[in-house]
Design a binder for these strands. Structure first.
Lengths: 216, 216
DNA sequence: ACAAATCTTGTCTAATTGGTCAATTTTTTA
DNA sequence: TAAAAAATTGACCAATTAGACAAGATTTGT
């Protein structure tokens, strides 16, 4: 006779949640600097302050850690992107997007770099993301841009390439940080630098699209 | 008595030159896809079609191969950048630079990616480059931009951040190729895609700076 | 043609790494 | 409090890798 009631298959206690996040942070840091192959499980473990075997207890294998890190980044992206509700005003919408994107480069540089390295390697683990979520997100943006153009609210500009410009310009501050630092003559990028960046990008993009900055 | 006349310390015969370039190409390809740690000497050797020991004969060690690849890329960069003579017309100069940069992304995507990965990793092997050649190149550009602004030839725009915009926008087509491909719905990027890219970037940047496109 | 220099290549080694496992400790639950 | 579940940990293994090296093949200079 079985007196014990079997518990559910998985109960994420606080210990697990805490340890897992700790290792995920350590892994993100390591992957962003040394890449997937350049990062050893030992390195992740050391950074997290736990023995190596512990990492294997929480994640299936090294690729498991990596995909967890990537998934975490995509979630972050999702919240950032979905936070932007498209208003009827192109200028306002573009400004909001640029500000959010620059802010992401400032607050999540490591995540940005892991994402960039994955792209640079041919994005073998982002195919699903690109074909599902990103595809849908992009299509909706292109439609909106096109509707603005059709309505005469902005210049006729290839929407996809415009998005690339915004993406590339903003991403640059996280991904090419050494170059940016050297160029701006600073050892660390501060809020003021990102403010100047956002200001310039917004200024050029808006005017370049035939838009006038929204009143603050 | 010594009858043999000692030859010079290093004579790069055709064999050496050929083999070295072949291995350098193989290494560039491997590094761009798998990164430094993810690339094995065996992989480089296989791609070049030679036994592994041969690579060690031509290069001191793995880092030697990598720095050779990086140096090669910086040379390429140098020729591209120096090819742009600054005319007195801002619009023409910017167009030339954007076209050259986009063309570099098209013709040298692997080199672009190796460079980007090095930046993403904190550019530990580019410090000298950044502090010497790049620093000088940047300063001269900033002066030119400022003079244009002072002369009222273009809007007052932070020159450094403007350069980052151009750099980031153009670099994007090599570094984020999977995203670009997916967005444009193509399996391979063709000349027409890069033409559209250059057109959009020039259109937005020029107008965004208060410039009118030069007559072709 | 001959000797010296250059180039090629198979083999070996020491070190690192991802991953396994069983033993132990800590936490949870009834 | 006692058993069960979850978490921690050190020791171990097999595979890969960078690099060394010596012997042999080829090219080059005289």
């Amino acid at each position: 006779m079985n007196r014990t009631i079997p518990r559910g298959p998985y109960k994420p206690g606080k210990i697990r949640q805490n340890s897992e996040q700790c290792m995920l942070d350590a892994a993100t840091q390591a992957f962003s600097r040394y890449g997937f192959s350049g990062t050893s499980m030992q390195n992740i473990a050391d950074t997290a302050g736990v023995p190596k075997a512990n990492v294997h207890y929480y994640f299936k294998n090294k690729m498991g850690v990596y995909t967890a890190v990537l998934g975490n980044i995509l979630d972050l992206w999702d919240t950032v992107l979905n936070d932007i509700t498209v208003t009827d005003n192109p200028a306002t919408a573009l400004c909001r997007y640029i500000d959010a994107k620059i802010d992401f480069s400032r607050t999540h540089p490591q995540e940005s770099r892991v994402f960039a390295k994955e792209m640079l390697s041919g994005a073998p683990h982002l195919q699903e993301f690109l074909q599902d979520k990103y595809e849908a997100w992009l299509a909706s943006r292109l439609r909106i841009f096109q509707s603005w153009i059709d309505a005469g609210k902005m210049d006729p500009i290839d929407p996809a390439h415009l998005l690339f410009m915004i993406w590339g310009s903003t991403q640059h501050y996280a991904d090419f940080e050494p170059q940016v630092k050297q160029s701006l003559g600073t050892d660390t990028l501060h809020q003021e630098h990102f403010d100047a960046a956002a200001k310039t990008v917004k200024q050029v993009i808006l005017k370049g699209c035939g838009l006038t900055p929204p009143a603050p």
